[in-house]
Design a protein around this nucleic acid. Structure first.
Length: 497
RNA sequence: GGGCCCUUCGUCUAUCGGUUAGGACAUCAGAUUUUCAAUCUGGGAAGACGGGUUCGACUCCCGUAGGGCCUGCCA
């Protein structure tokens, strides 16, 4: 079988013509480069849900391409970075099930390397020492803004002050002419006029590298092939591209994903209910539900809505990420979570409900797990979160004798009491104590009494739950079990009126 | 001020020059009925606006409007 040779761009017609090599396209990534993605959060104390989605996209893309997914902690801001804040990131990724393929890189620990690159840039004439004072800078900023241009430092073309070691920063020396292309995988080609780009500071006066230098150096050293990050970095990508080019490093492919907004379209904040992944965990969302929902937020695959990791990995391509920002929709998140709650392993749900109850400060009883295991299958279809599931299980966890609410007690009168007594006797003869069987028995009983279920349903529910909140009657009886059910009825009937 | 990005039902999205503009969530109506929920059936709901290009535009181009990001010795 003859196979067409894989041609390099420009091969064929140009083959053999010396000097006729195809033009270098600065942002054309090497298609054979191994795929390495990364999530690079800064430890600010919480992990934003948008960061979580960006992590998910990086993870999905790496998995899809058979590449690697890495984690870098951007802790160069020493004021804000704490061990606790770093732990929050680890926990968040861990909970989401997005484990990086290598130990995390701590950016601050690499400051020497960043300085080394800054010096190399300086020696190559691609950077310069800027001695502007804060006042001078402020004045220039104001002036530049008024004139509608980027700020410029007079030290770009000036000799350093003789023999001085006055405080100064090191700025990148960007080209004043020409343009820089960022061929974004999501946004498409974006062209920046170089004159619009200011000479960014790469080394602070205290010698600490800045973000824009550190990302470039770290992404290069970590061999990151695809930088998939928030929309807010699109402008930075142009300046970073210039740094890559100055170092003669291969520029990674960029993909800038739009931010997640609140339901009202404004920037997502605390007032929208939640912002940090830890909050979603505490509210009782399942990590697999978060992954599915987050994947569908800003990305889609035809009409597919509910799908697992394997499918997402098979289908995902950053190029298909939607360009516009998406709003967080609690209704849909709840719906997706409900789906995963339904198919989740019930022992696991028992554990999660127990944890939720403990967080609420409830003192556990020895048979809680057993009761939950019986109740969960019956109530879980109606639960949107673990917290709701816990609420729906409350009736099963209540201890005898139940305290009846006023409303419940009012449903007990002479007639309903007598009927419940007869029902108790009737149920005593019931041996197949399961939901469908019990429903059948209830109907038989109603028929025998010559009434509808409505005649005693409310009273039965009141007696079984105390406050009336229980699933359907057969379900409640099934969840409670024979002894507990009959016991609760008995408790209520034997209580003085 | 300047640069850049974005704009399909209320929301998330499909469509990628020719469709009755599809799906999901939400919503409404009906069915079921022992509260709530769940379930089933059905309905309403969209291409910001104005110009082009084209036989034909939600899809391509330009402009306007409205959102957003950047414009830090934050990341």
């Amino acid at each position: 079988m003859i196979r067409a040779p894989t041609l390099r761009r420009g091969d064929g017609r140009d083959a053999g013509a010396p000097g006729a090599l195809p033009p270098v396209e600065p942002n054309m990534p090497d298609p054979d480069r191994p795929v390495v993605t990364r999530i690079a959060p800064s430890p600010t104390g919480s992990m934003h849900i948008g960061t979580a989605r960006t992590a998910l996209f990086n993870w999905l893309y790496a998995r899809h391409c058979g590449g690697r997914f890495l984690l870098r902690i951007e802790d160069t801001d020493r004021e804000r970075s704490t061990e606790v804040a770093v732990q929050v990131i680890f926990d968040g990724l861990d909970w989401l099930g997005l484990q990086p393929d290598a130990p995390p890189v701590f950016q601050f620990a690499r400051a020497d390397r960043h300085r080394e690159v800054a010096m190399a840039l300086l020696e190559a004439g691609r950077a310069y020492r800027c001695y502007m004072t804060v006042e001078e800078l402020a004045a220039e900023r104001e002036k530049a803004r008024a004139e509608g241009r980027a700020i410029r430092s007079p030290w770009r073309d000036r000799e350093p002050p003789a023999g001085s070691n006055t405080s100064h920063v090191i700025r990148f020396r960007g080209p004043l002419e020409g343009e820089t292309l960022v061929d974004d995988m999501i946004k498409g080609p974006v062209v920046f006029q170089n004159r619009e780009l200011d000479d960014l500071v790469i080394l602070r006066s205290d010698g600490v590298p800045t973000y824009n230098l550190a990302v470039v150096v770290d992404d290069h050293d970590m061999d990151i092939s695809h930088v998939i990050r928030g929309d807010d970095h699109l402008n930075n990508a142009a300046r970073q591209t210039l740094i890559y080019q100055s170092m003669a490093w291969e520029v990674p492919a960029f993909a800038h994903v739009p931010l997640i907004h609140g339901p009202d379209g404004a920037k997502l904040s605390k007032r929208h209910g939640a912002q940090a992944v830890g909050e979603f965990a505490d509210m009782g969302f399942l990590p697999e539900a978060m992954r599915n929902y987050l994947a569908r937020l800003g990305w889609g695959h035809g009409d597919d809505e509910l799908f697992g990791d394997e499918q997402a990995i098979a289908w995902f391509d950053v190029r298909d990420v939607v360009k516009a920002p998406a709003r967080l929709d609690w209704n849909k998140l709840h719906h997706v979570n409900n789906h995963y709650l339904r198919i989740a392993d019930e022992e696991r749900l028992v554990r999660l409900v127990m944890e939720a109850l403990a967080r609420r400060g409830r003192t556990p009883h020895a048979d809680d797990e057993a009761r939950l295991l019986a109740a969960i299958p019956i109530v879980k279809d109606g639960a949107k979160t673990i917290l709701e599931l816990a609420d729906l299980c409350a009736f099963a966890l209540a201890r005898r004798p139940l305290v009846l609410t006023e409303k419940s007690a009012s449903l007990l009168n002479e007639e309903t009491r007598a009927r419940l007594a007869r029902l108790a006797a009737f149920l005593l003869e019931t041996h197949e104590w399961d939901q469908p069987g019990l429903l059948e028995r209830l109907r038989e009983f109603a028929a025998a009494e010559g009434v509808g279920l409505g005649k005693f349903g409310g009273a039965l529910r009141a007696v079984l739950s105390g406050d009336g909140s229980a699933p359907d009657l057969a379900g409640a009886l099934a969840a409670l079990g024979r002894d507990e059910s009959l016991g609760r009825i008995d408790d209520a009937l034997s209580r003085s009126q």
